[in-house]
Amino acid sequence: MVLAQRAIASMDLDPIQIGIVPESGPNRVGLVGLPVWMWVDSPTDDTFGPITASASEGSVSVSATASVASIVWDMGDGTTVTCTGEGTPYADHYGKQDSPTCGHRYEKMSTDQPDGAYQVTATSHWVVEWTGGGQSGTIEFDLTTDALPIRIGEAQVLTQ
């Protein structure tokens, strides 16, 4: 187990990079009721896996392989969305359709977020399978991103 932990430490794993539409930033606002798309932006071995590393001490060697089994998205409105896989990056030709792999819709404006800003985080659930020294096992742990603010507004229809 100690060698497995050492192998995992040598992987230098990081939380994913969030891909999301609507994008974070000034002059970027999504609308209540429209789909939000979430995905792993530019996945790498150390942010999504699979990645394999080994550690040895004396004649004992352990090999460990780590990969993300799921991602729990905290949407900042009291809901979480659990997705498996990397998600589907949004492209303009998708229009207003829901993400086929990982999405959400904000249903109403929250009184807790008067400016429409929601703090989104993504928690990667890593599963590591290890074997060596006549033993094997599974180690699981989570890595969470820093919060990413996105803004959601309401469309107002004006008639004259």
Rank of each mutant, 00 (worst) to 15 (best):
L3V: 05
L3A: 07
A4W: 00
Q5F: 00
Q5T: 00
Q5M: 00
R6I: 09
A9T: 08
A9V: 05
A9Q: 09
D12P: 07
D14R: 14
P15S: 11
I18A: 01
G19R: 02
I20L: 13
V21Q: 07
P22R: 13
P22A: 04
E23V: 12
G25A: 10
R28Q: 15
V29H: 07
G30M: 11
G30P: 12
L31G: 14
L31K: 13
V32H: 06
V32S: 13
V32R: 13
G33F: 09
G33E: 04
G33A: 09
V36Y: 12
V36W: 09
V40M: 05
D41R: 15
D41C: 06
D41P: 03
S42M: 07
S42D: 12
P43C: 08
P43Y: 06
T44Q: 14
T44H: 08
D45V: 11
F48M: 07
F48L: 11
F48S: 11
I51Y: 02
A53F: 08
S54W: 01
S54N: 07
S54T: 15
S56E: 13
S56A: 15
G58M: 07
S59W: 08
V60N: 05
V60S: 04
V62C: 00
V62E: 00
S63Q: 12
T65Q: 11
S67W: 08
V68C: 03
V68P: 07
V68N: 02
S70L: 13
I71E: 09
W73S: 05
W73K: 02
D74Y: 12
D74V: 08
M75I: 13
G76R: 10
G76D: 09
T79F: 15
T79Q: 14
T84A: 11
G85D: 01
G85V: 03
G85C: 01
E86H: 05
G87A: 07
T88P: 03
Y90A: 00
Y90S: 01
A91K: 10
D92G: 07
H93M: 00
Y94I: 09
Y94N: 06
K96D: 09
K96R: 02
Q97C: 00
Q97H: 03
P100A: 10
T101H: 12
T101E: 13
C102M: 06
C102Y: 08
G103C: 04
H104K: 10
R105C: 01
Y106A: 04
E107D: 10
M109S: 06
T111S: 12
D112I: 00
P114E: 04
D115Q: 12
G116A: 07
G116P: 05
G116R: 06
G116M: 09
G116F: 14
A117F: 13
A117I: 10
Y118T: 01
Y118S: 01
T121Y: 14
A122T: 05
H125G: 01
H125Q: 11
W126L: 04
V128I: 15
W130A: 00
T131K: 08
G132M: 05
G132P: 08
G132Y: 04
G133E: 14
G134V: 10
G137R: 06
I139A: 02
E140K: 15
F141C: 03
F141I: 02
L143D: 09
D146F: 07
A147P: 15
L148V: 14
L148W: 06
I150Y: 12
R151L: 10
I152F: 12
I152V: 14
G153Y: 03
V157H: 08
L158E: 06
T159A: 09
T159M: 05
